[in-house]
């Protein structure tokens, strides 16, 4: 019985508390660096696309949202660094689950997931991102933290490695 009273008093006390709500559009909380948001396709420094149209990302995708149609690079039309390039590269954002498998599957680090999460549109078609959209730099609408506060393991490893210099101790020749 006393527990019930305690519960009621708790809720009653909240009536007079200042709400803790973060008013979203006005205030955006920074996401952490490894947050997986909108995809981005990358280019080499020389401007060629990193993507060679191998379709491994499409194969890896669990929700079948990536469509890749490759084509041969010709000397006159060299798009990518490899033999072939992605003639069509589409991601259906309505289906994507932002798992990041494509990023892992890609042999050329051609695709990564960025931090942007404000992707709402008013039509479904608009959610199918084409290659050109993906190659663009996304608008920086989402604030991001400099240090990932949740990536404790890597920080810890670095700290420990720094303390003992393990890399050299276990690998005197400096080999792999």
């Amino acid at each position: 019985m006393l527990d019930q009273v305690k519960g009621f008093s708790t809720t009653f006390r909240h009536l007079f508390q200042k709400p803790i709500t973060q008013q979203y559009p006005e205030y955006k909380r920074p996401v952490y660096p490894r947050f997986r948001g909108r995809h981005q396709l990358h280019r080499h420094e020389n401007g060629l696309e990193k993507c060679v149209g191998c379709s491994l990302c499409a194969a890896a995708c669990p929700s079948d949202c990536i469509r890749v149609v490759p084509a041969e690079n010709t000397p006159d039309n060299r798009v990518s660094a490899g033999e072939r390039y992605a003639r069509i590269y589409e991601i259906n954002m309505a289906r994507c689950i932002f798992c990041g498998y494509c990023e892992l599957a890609c042999p050329f680090d051609a695709i990564t997931l960025g931090n942007d999460f404000e992707l709402s549109e008013i039509s479904r078609e608009a959610l199918v991102y084409t290659k050109s959209m993906l190659l663009e730099k996304p608008a920086l609408r989402t604030p991001s933290q400099a240090v990932d506060p949740y990536d404790v393991p890597s920080q810890e490893i670095e700290r420990v490695l720094g303390m003992y210099d393990i890399t050299t101790a276990t690998n005197p020749e400096g080999a792999e």
Partner: peptide, 9 residues
């Protein structure tokens, strides 16, 4: 009221 009970607006 529910909002305020839950510390919301």
């Amino acid at each position: 009221l529910i909002g305020r009970f839950q510390a919301r607006y």
